[in-house]
Design a protein around this nucleic acid. Structure first.
Lengths: 228, 228
DNA sequence: ATGAAAAATAACGTATGCATTGATGTGTAC
DNA sequence: GTACACATCAATGCATACGTTATTTTTCAT
């Protein structure tokens, strides 16, 4: 399991298909940052008409992944260091709220096992030095945390930023030090959630996010990774 | 000056026109909560074709104002007490961040006068018992505050929720006690911003948002206002 | 009379066509 | 040789037409 992309698997409407396809192509690098693509060519690649492609383009524009420019196609926006700073500021405000709410609310049995599972996967992946697997576990953990808050708007808002973080994170995976502390943080946070310790959960997660944000932005600055 | 709605006044594209028109009709009550409207009729009222109306509908759906249901038209979603709880949780996380960032960053001369202006209007309106004018000043103040944070994503995220708060607030304006403390809060916050006191700005605004949220949700519960 | 099934209707989702408009290339004049 | 203007072209934005599908109505059978 990696990043969730699909909107509705039941009836793959052309609109959803276009959105998912373009988003996937951006995330895995088939559409290159700073390059432009015409609606018509995207439509042909995906196998739908221009209408759903246009729909997807506007949606992705609202999500900050692309910019549609009159007569110049959709521009794949690179993720800059400033973007990551903005995003981490938001996530540092939003996810600790999620942690607090989740702790107050309590985890369901399924949620508890799923989060424990994700944490264990991170610990195992770290021991085996499998950083990609570690990042996947981390993504899942954060998604589950926000889900557990029960605040639908919070879930929706953070999902939007997670896709952009994903790109920066993948680029820096091999550059960063081993995420020892980060992995421990997750286990501690999960304990707080299980105990219903809302304040503890919030505090742990604020620290976690601040450290992660600082590390990432420093890495991006050091390596001049300004166009992901 | 009231809520900003327009996206681009220069070249009123049909898409923007449809979006602005529908949003305005929702906010001023011409489209009633819990009622449905067909794309075709909206298109005719606005004077564009179905395509931009559909575009606007999808956008408003993402923003949580409507739900488009296959063959049943766009449903104007009522704002429930739970919605307001969710929204105030988010705003209580986001706006204090904005206050902190704005204080660190400092206000430009224009920003400072605009915010002082808004605050003065609130104080005057309160003295004259003009609650509608008071609410407008309050809206403007909060919009300016978030603008001053300089975080584009933060600006965009809060703008989304402000429209929904607007509806609930208008409904409760005459029910709530006179917003004495709230008005003072704004002046105090502005002082913190001008002094560059980031921590003070954050703390004042957290308290402000928590109080406002609690008051509003209690009012909604007391008066059983569950479908705005 | 009631219920079910089938046909008709109506609305959306998608495709396509057209007009508008910005970009690009060429030609001419200085 | 360079710069500006005009013409051509191409891609979007919007409108419209079509096909799909859910809903509703009507009819028939029990």
């Amino acid at each position: 399991m990696s990043l969730k992309v699909a909107t509705d698997d039941k009836h793959p409407s052309a609109g959803a298909k276009a959105y998912d396809a373009i988003k996937a192509m951006i995330l895995d690098g088939r559409l290159k940052p700073s390059a432009s693509y015409l609606e018509a060519e995207l439509a042909e690649w995906i196998g739908v008409s221009r209408t759903p492609v246009r729909e997807a383009g506007l949606r992705l524009e609202r999500e900050g992944l692309v910019k549609v420019r009159p007569r110049r196609g959709v521009l794949i926006l690179p993720v800059s260091a400033e973007d990551m700073t903005e995003i981490y500021q938001l996530l540092t405000a939003l996810e600790p709220l999620a942690a607090e709410l989740a702790a107050e609310r309590g985890l369901s049995a399924e949620q508890a096992t799923a989060m424990d599972n994700a944490t264990t996967r991170m610990e195992r992946a770290l021991a085996e030095d499998n950083l990609v697997a570690w990042a996947e576990g981390d993504d899942d953990f954060h998604a589950l945390l926000v889900e557990a808050s029960g605040n639908k708007r919070l879930i929706e808002a953070t999902a939007r930023y997670r896709t952009q973080v994903h790109r920066a994170r993948m680029a820096t995976l091999s550059l960063r030090p081993r995420p020892e502390q980060s992995t421990v943080d997750h286990r501690v946070l999960l304990d707080c959630l299980l105990k219903g310790d809302a304040k503890g959960a919030r505090d742990v997660h604020v620290a976690h996010r601040q450290a992660a944000g600082q590390m990432l932005t420093e890495l991006l600055a050091q390596h001049r990774l300004n166009n992901l």
